[in-house]
Design a protein around this nucleic acid. Structure first.
Lengths: 291, 291
DNA sequence: ATCGACTATACGAATACGTTATAATGGACA
DNA sequence: TGTCCATTATAACGTATTCGTATAGTCGAT
């Protein structure tokens, strides 16, 4: 039993004559005739009685039609779903990300990506970078974004490195400088990430290298929190130029020397091949993180 | 998208390798390979990644599989239903019949016919012969059984004629005769059908022809009722030899002269072709009525 | 009787299907 | 490292299916 036969059968049942069914399916009348003959032969049912040169569906045809239509619809549905999957309109996209990126950049990118994809199920789970690393290794997510370094390296990792910028409140006197160095900040109230963070360590050695006093007045977990403190005038601070950009609105941002490196990475599952949607979105994410 | 492709896809998803899928479907491995390649090409989906010379289903394949399996099952179901229809295991059989036949013979035949046909829906509607005639002309039934004559003739009518027999209570003195004539029954209490019935008229002229006194002590609507009265010893009567046979158990039945003719007919819908089940059962019925 | 609308059959070309033979790939193991 | 084993992919080829055109047959209506 072939789908084409069922299609012809349905058209014939719906339109009464082979000639019209043929028009509808864009094929010739003899084509329909042979299709129907084949279907009758294969099913062993007399689907039509030829009376007066016309076809009349038998009771068997009416019974069979119900199932035939159902099967056709299921096949057509499968086709449609294939198209949806292909175009990324259907599928699921579970992303694990560390907090800073999942607050603003990720949802912004995702909602743009999901436009025109009504059947796409999106999940964002926010965890610290270590947990993200674990989640992706247990294949629970299609894509993950974590800060480096990770406890142990992963294959399928795409790294993005940034040089952190110095951020100052709007009317800060140092805003006139093109570039900030630790000696400019000697004794200036400073908002930084926590002691355990690589950023903290890099800053500490930068200040000691320049022989400047690092006056830490606040430690935060995220850049976004630090940005808010700086905006409130609590001090100056340091921030990455891309992921945290949305939080530096209204602040003055200047290059910082020496280089304070901040790295994030896009991680993919190792054992399972990533889905097309995941690859597509990874592309979007890559473009955004490269900027 | 062809069903065969979906079949191969399913087998491959379920069994992991093309080689095993091929075995399962009774075809060669290259056959599966080209089928899958065709499916991937037509749907535009990368269903499998070739890694390490093995196939690994992509997330897209898993999504698509759900719909593919559904479509396949629907098609297989249609096939199965076709087989059921063909063998008469599925369908409906609505029969209109006049009372005498629908009391015993029809249900007996039907239940025998419906054995091994679990999905066959049976309907028996009992009406007098005139109503039966109308029901069948309005195409409400697949088959009808009515007594003749009908008010107006119908095409697709198969007539069965019987010579009525005389029935006597068990120990009746006339039981010793091989054949009964009206003069044997001169003045004998007689149970007959109603005055409007052709049987009544035939009996009346038979008795008058033989110059015998017809002593009608009871009029009934059905032969079956008459039989019961005769069994109770209320009198003798007349009965058809086939349809009413089940009711003459324990009675003495003898040929009657002159011929009292009783006719029934199997009627088929005129406008619509009868279903295969209807034709099949008509055959059973014909055999039973001919006996 | 002829026309019009329809279905069935014959035949040929393109496509699909499924086979065998064979190449290519990669993992396991000595 | 090389060899064996299991797997997938490709090529070549015969057969079946599909669908077109041409044409014949059938029936009802005018």
């Amino acid at each position: 039993m072939r789908l084409r036969q069922l299609e012809c059968f349905r058209a014939l049942m719906l339109h009464g004559t082979m000639t019209r069914a043929a028009e509808l399916l864009g094929m010739s009348q003899p084509g329909i005739s042979t299709m129907i003959a084949g279907l009758e032969h294969e099913t062993g049912l007399n689907l039509f009685v030829r009376r007066g040169g016309r076809l009349q569906p038998t009771p068997e045809a009416k019974l069979f039609y119900v199932e035939a239509a159902r099967a056709l619809e299921a096949a057509e549905n499968a086709s449609r779903v294939a198209a949806e999957i292909r175009s990324g309109r259907r599928g699921h996209l579970a992303i694990a990300a560390y907090p800073s990126i999942s607050i603003n950049l990720l949802p912004r990118l995702l909602s743009q990506f999901a436009r025109n994809k009504p059947e796409l199920q999106i999940k964002i789970i926010t965890r610290n970078s270590a947990t993200v690393r674990e989640l992706i290794s247990t294949q629970q997510f299609d894509l993950a974004v974590a800060e480096l370094p990770l406890d142990y390296p992963t294959s399928h990792m795409e790294v993005f490195s940034y040089d952190c910028m110095c951020m100052l409140p709007h009317a800060h006197p140092l805003a006139k400088l093109k570039q900030i160095t630790p000696d400019n900040l000697d004794g200036v109230p400073f908002v930084t990430l926590f002691r355990g963070d690589p950023i903290y360590q890099q800053l500490a050695s930068a200040f000691s290298e320049y022989g400047a006093r690092w006056n830490v007045v606040a430690e935060t977990e995220f850049f976004s929190t630090a940005c808010q403190l700086v905006a409130e005038g609590r001090g100056v601070g340091i921030v990455d130029p891309v992921v945290s950009k949305p939080f530096t609105e209204g602040l003055v941002v200047r290059p910082f020397k020496p280089r304070i490196q901040y790295q994030v990475a896009i991680l993919s599952p190792t054992h399972e091949a990533p889905s097309q949607v995941a690859r597509d979105f990874a592309g979007q994410l890559r473009r955004a993180l490269r900027t």
